[in-house]
Design a protein around this nucleic acid. Structure first.
Lengths: 202, 202
DNA sequence: ACAACAAACGAACGTTCGTACTATTTTCTC
DNA sequence: GAGAAAATAGTACGAACGTTCGTTTGTTGT
């Protein structure tokens, strides 16, 4: 049973490294050195590099869910939870849950043109994430917190785009206002469609 | 003078390849094979791989400007030009100007955590792009087409995020509605702040 | 305590990477 | 068209890649 423990610690380190260097830049030798173990010993836990990449993505997904969804699900459904997801996301990138910025934003752009199992998995997880966002929006509509005429898929698209934009501005440009900007943008967007707030503003 | 011609055709191909495989995935041997020339012959045009990457980015930048800015600058400044930039961007990604999707979105996420000259160049060009967007917005304000109270930098951030989001949805998720959604989002955003349209809506 | 098994190791495989040198061919100049 | 210069090809290198192998070490169950 020790193998499983080792495997997990390898994967945790792999996630951090891949968020910095990319999933393709993640190298078995480098990872082994980093963990103070042999290349072959590490390799034995996975049958191939692709398997390592897939397992790394799964581990990253768990961390993503733990940091964003788990806390948000404790908040009452509807508008409060929608807001909690937004705050959790921006906090997640600000806190540096992944040292190289959002793992999935990076993976999405790295593999969007590389067919294969890795791309398929990234796509599946990202679709799940967008769907989860959409569901949170629909719940807010069902609760009567949000205008029922709003296109939930459209809003989910926009929110996700703004999240990725925050990651971009923060990590590449080093814009210290990135989080602030994204917060303002997302809040502005969802507050505008809050029920009872239709053209109520001043 | 033939060298320069060859160099340019190498770089054009390098741009396409890098947009698909990433700037790090771009390999000298692969590129040479692809062009039917020797590795060493190709290599002689650049002193190092890093120089090749930098030159590739510059070439991509020229294509980016040619496809987005040059046409937009023919449109009268102010709101029309702002709209033209948005349309040009979305058309650029829809037409597949780079076969692997927006070169700079990919490069931004690939190098956001890799210090060095490549990252510096990407950052510089992306800053230029955001600044150009911002300038177009400010011009629209100066022309009296857009509410002068709008934070131009904030809007530029949001527009860029939506553009990247369109690229993401189109290329990774294969969402055929991606362009449509981004168009709706961006238009909605800029039409809302058009002068004379403040809380005029039904 | 000992056998059975799992886990990690070190060395080596063939391949490809970027890069360096040297030759050969092609292109330009007069 | 000869000679200089530029461009391309050829070959080789050390390092790193992912992967395989046989062996040694460590853990586990009885």
């Amino acid at each position: 049973m020790k193998g499983e423990r080792t495997r997990q610690s390898i994967l945790e380190r792999a996630v951090d490294l891949a968020s910095l260097e990319g999933l393709e830049g993640l190298t078995i030798g480098r990872l082994a050195d980093d963990l103070g173990m042999s290349k072959s010993g590490l390799f034995a836990h996975f049958g191939s590099k692709e398997d390592l990449q897939l397992a790394t993505i799964q581990t990253a997904s768990q961390r993503y869910i733990r940091e964003i969804f788990t806390p948000a699900l404790k908040v009452p459904r509807g508008y409060p939870r929608l807001l909690a997801i937004c705050d959790a996301w921006l906090s997640y990138v600000e806190r540096g849950v992944f040292p190289g910025g959002c793992f999935f934003a990076a993976a999405s752009f790295e593999f969007d043109s590389r067919p294969g199992p890795v791309r398929d998995l990234v796509r599946t997880l990202m679709t799940d994430w967008i769907n989860a966002l959409e569901k949170a929006i629909r719940m807010a509509q069902e609760e009567g917190h949000v205008d029922p005429d709003v296109d939930a898929a459209q809003l989910a698209f926009e929110m996700n785009a703004l999240f990725f934009g925050a990651n971009f501005s923060l990590h590449l440009l080093g814009d210290t206002q990135a989080i602030e900007r994204a917060t303002r943008a997302v809040r502005g967007r969802i507050e505008a469609i809050r029920s009872g707030s239709l053209s109520v503003g001043a």
